Computed example of a mutant assay.
Amino acid sequence: MDELVDILDENGKPTGEFCLKSEAHRKGLFHPTVHVWFYTEQGEILIQQRGKDKATHPLLWDVSVAGHVSSGEKIETAAVREVEEEIGLDITEDDLERIGTFKEIHKISNNFTDAEFHHVFLSELHVPLHDLTKQESEVEALGLIAVRQFAEETLDLVYSAKYVPHGTDYYKSIIQEIKKRL
């Protein structure tokens, strides 16, 4: 879906401008996104396999829920909306624990650059995997993975082709923050 997104400067501050998401990607303009990582008290992380028709990183495993923040939308509101859309889970802003913002640039092609500031949240998953409903157009599959295995796989070059390349520092931060809560 092509939606309006706010344009950010290289430090993540709003410029007061907005455009269609497709234009932001075409021009490599910074814009905000949300990442919500779900974990269980048993020490598992919910991961999603991106849909086969996604423009970026199709079929790679990624954050539990991710999406763009619509122009003028509050970051936490976008996170709650994306969780409901992508995995069918009804949460509130109180269920989200903000852990940081990460700047990331992925040049996909000459006409497509993902220049984003990811607003990252954690949330404990209180329902079984089979109670989640994946958004067919966005999500190929959902899975739970032990934190230890996830750490080994995201920090090991052997598995680098399995996951979206967010970078070692990003994955280390997520793992560290989840471990603090277990």
Rank of each mutant, 00 (worst) to 15 (best):
S173V: 10
K74D: 11
S109F: 11
L122A: 03
D95A: 07
L60K: 15
Q176T: 09
K162D: 06
L46D: 04
Q42L: 13
R148C: 12
V83M: 03
F102W: 10
L60E: 12
T101N: 07
R148A: 15
T40Y: 01
T101Y: 02
G51L: 02
S70K: 11
T40C: 04
K54N: 12
I105Q: 06
A66D: 02
L125D: 04
L129W: 07
V164A: 12
E153I: 01
E140T: 01
V69F: 06
W61I: 08
S173M: 15
I105S: 06
P165T: 12
T154F: 06
F102V: 02
E136S: 09
G167K: 13
G43M: 07
I145F: 08
A79F: 10
K74I: 15
I91D: 13
L157R: 13
K103V: 04
I175R: 07
V139T: 10
F102I: 05
T40A: 00
K107M: 12
R81Y: 09
V69N: 03
A151I: 10
F150Y: 05
A115I: 03
H130G: 04
L144W: 04
I47Q: 03
I145W: 08
E85Y: 08
L122P: 03
V65D: 06
Y163W: 12
R148L: 14
I174Q: 15
E86P: 14
P58F: 09
D94V: 05
V158M: 08
K54C: 00
Q135C: 06
Q49T: 05
D156Y: 11
D156L: 13
D114R: 02
T56R: 14
H130A: 04
Q42D: 11
S64H: 07
D156P: 11
H68C: 13
K162V: 07
N111E: 13
Q48C: 10
T154N: 10
L155I: 08
Y171I: 01
G167F: 15
A141T: 13
P128K: 15
D131H: 04
T92N: 15
K134N: 03
L89H: 09
I105W: 10
R81T: 07
E104T: 14
A66V: 07
E73T: 13
E73I: 12
G43Y: 04
A151W: 00
K172V: 14
